[in-house]
Write a protein that binds this DNA or RNA. Structure first.
Lengths: 206, 206
DNA sequence: TGGGCCCGTTCGAACGCTCGTTCGGTCGGA
DNA sequence: TCCGACCGAACGAGCGTTCGAACGGGCCCA
């Protein structure tokens, strides 16, 4: 097994273990077992538990940012850019449910050694949303208000971007359209002509 | 000190400790220290760590349900009932930030002995929302769809009902009106005449 | 009335366990 | 022979929980 694959296996083991048990409750022994390695064998590759968390967070945020940027470049208008971000976020939640769970729940638990980098990644992602909302905003809202609106929207997305509501890729797409319409109604204070009614929670299981 | 006060002190100590550190990372020793009791002294009153969590969850959910029901009885129309629920949820998040944090983050960690009761309380709270949304619904949505809509709304509320966005009681009131208008736009697919525009994130800090 | 006793309250100390981490060593390919 | 890969075993610390004992105010019976 190549060394790169070994690292991939370790990161994957840490990801699923942390997602299932939570960072604090998960033990390095569990991660080692999931990676088909002994405890000491795992320590040959990583410096400690904190580094395992950083590996997971770093890769997760990197994937999320890459997906978001790819979606942004292929969208022309501010409205479609917002819808693209929403859809990307939900698709990330569908394709990488474990990663989103760890990123949202355990990112604060990373120690000072890696915190700055994680915070910077999260901030970079937030900036994508802020830029789009600033483009869209018809009221000249200040930075603080746009920041609040972003948190509102992300809170909504993270509340719904769980496996329970994302059973298929179609769920993610349908929900994205619905949430986008829902949010734009309120944010722009006018109807969005996206050609379909803004029903909430139509196709997925409850 | 009366025995009731002792239990109150223990519950309060467990609440703040669990909220700050998370259930798993918090130790019974910390709770004992916060309750001005020795470790063994604390065990004289409670059976174990799990019971401490149950004490906190039970009281928190009880308060939330009581506040919600009180708000519901004084609202006449479905719209105002929904706004009352939203406002109550945010006011609870403002007045009992620690309790909301534990209820949202750690409720799954309660062991089987107390799980049924906690689940029942959560379900009872959810039922309040479902009943109001069913009244409001102009499209004859099914139970599954209404359940999804409720989760969407609660996800949004829990994302925003944190101390960062709730610095004063006015923040809670203003945000409630804004979120209510935002959600009703999408849910009813028509403007809600509540006499003020649905700006997002107006008065609170970001 | 007073001495002895009970019992709720509280504690120090320890139990067994799991944790994150380290160390000394073996093994196999270059 | 060297060196990276990998492991068994152990370390010290902290965990949840338990135990035996000490304290102290109220009660019974002489």
């Amino acid at each position: 097994m190549a060394i790169g694959e070994r690292y991939d296996a370790i990161r994957e083991a840490a990801l699923t273990t942390f997602a299932r048990r939570g960072f604090h409750h998960a033990s390095v022994r569990e991660v080692a077992r999931a990676a088909h390695l002994s405890l000491a064998g795992l320590y040959h590759y990583v410096g400690g538990k904190d580094e395992l968390l950083f590996l997971v967070l770093d890769r997760g945020l990197d994937t999320l940012l890459t997906m978001a940027d790819a979606a942004l470049t292929s969208a022309r208008t501010p409205e479609t850019r917002l819808l693209a971000l929403i859809r990307t976020h939900l698709e990330f939640g569908f394709a990488h449910a474990d990663a989103l769970r760890v990123v949202n729940r355990d990112w604060e638990l990373v120690t000072a050694a890696h915190r700055a980098e994680v915070v910077a990644r999260r901030r970079a992602y937030m900036d994508r949303w802020l830029a789009v909302l600033a483009e869209l905003d018809p009221h000249g809202r200040g930075e603080r208000e746009l920041f609040s609106a972003t948190n509102l929207l992300l809170g909504m997305l993270n509340g719904i971007a769980v496996p329970r509501f994302l059973k298929t890729a179609d769920d993610a797409r349908a929900l994205a359209a619905q949430i986008g319409a829902l949010f734009l109604y309120g944010f722009l204070e006018r109807s969005v002509d996206d050609g379909e009614p803004a029903t909430v929670g139509g196709t997925h299981d409850g």
